[in-house]
């Protein structure tokens, strides 16, 4: 009986420690930045698909209350596309090249009391996201229409992202608390442009139209960073 009570006491103590309220800086503006790596899945024209890895960085500027945090967030991701079909400016192209993704949006996060490690609390959040995806084809075949090497395709997309992670709880943000999060994002293109990127100092948009069919992108990323100030 005594042993059982002892065990129950230790279980109770462990749970109490695990559910201790977060002790961290609050009611302050905060800028966070980090790096991310992950995988992207993209569907192109005519049902073509690609799945590739990439890296990037992310920044978040917002306000932190005790448990809630609201930030303007941006995720930047560089990757590759392989054997995808695209359509833009009445042209159809198949090819390989580089892929750039930059997204912006408000992100609302909630910090839970649960601590898997000492001073690290779980959090989750989400928000809408607007992005511009740029595809610069390096090796391509023009199926129809006209498309030159100096041209690039850009997709304006809208979607959302969900985050789940752990964040270090420090008394002051000047101690640069660390965060590690898992990001899932979905984007669907609403407008496609063909841009002449021959002269980097001058942007020449050749055409803008709605994408012929659904161009969708999924991201799974691991992101890690710190509170800068």
């Amino acid at each position: 009986m005594e042993k059982l009570l002892g065990k129950l006491f230790w279980i109770y103590l462990t749970l109490q420690l695990a559910w201790l309220p977060a002790f961290s800086y609050e009611d302050e503006l905060v800028l966070k930045g980090g790096v991310n790596a992950g995988r992207m899945e993209i569907t192109g024209f005519n049902g073509s698909e690609d799945n590739s890895g990439g890296v990037g960085f992310n920044t978040h500027f917002g306000y932190k209350w005790t448990k809630w945090e609201f930030a303007l967030s941006s995720y930047i991701y560089y990757g590759k596309v392989d054997q995808l079909a695209f359509q833009g400016n009445s042209s159809q192209i198949n090819g390989n090249g580089s892929f750039r993704h930059v997204s912006f949006g408000p992100l609302l996060k909630y910090l839970t009391d649960y601590q898997p490690f000492k001073n690290y609390n779980f959090y989750f959040g989400g928000g809408p996201s607007w992005s511009l995806q740029t595809i610069k084809l390096e090796d391509f075949r023009v199926v129809s229409g006209e498309f030159k090497r100096q041209h690039k395709l850009t997709y304006r997309s809208f979607g959302g992202l969900l985050v789940f992670g752990i964040e270090e709880q420090m008394a002051f943000k000047q101690q640069h608390p660390v965060y590690v999060e898992f990001v899932y994002s979905y984007m669907a293109a609403s407008k496609v442009s063909v841009v002449d990127a021959g002269d980097f100092s001058d942007t020449n948009i050749l055409s803008e139209s709605k994408p012929g069919q659904s161009i969708e992108t999924w991201f799974w990323m691991i992101s890690a960073g710190i509170a800068l100030f």
Partner: peptide, 17 residues
């Protein structure tokens, strides 16, 4: 531009630090 509105002050501050 959306990019300029966000990146000028935010990436500017990261670089600025």
């Amino acid at each position: 531009s959306v990019q300029d509105l966000y990146q000028t002050p935010i990436l500017g501050a990261v670089l600025g630090v």
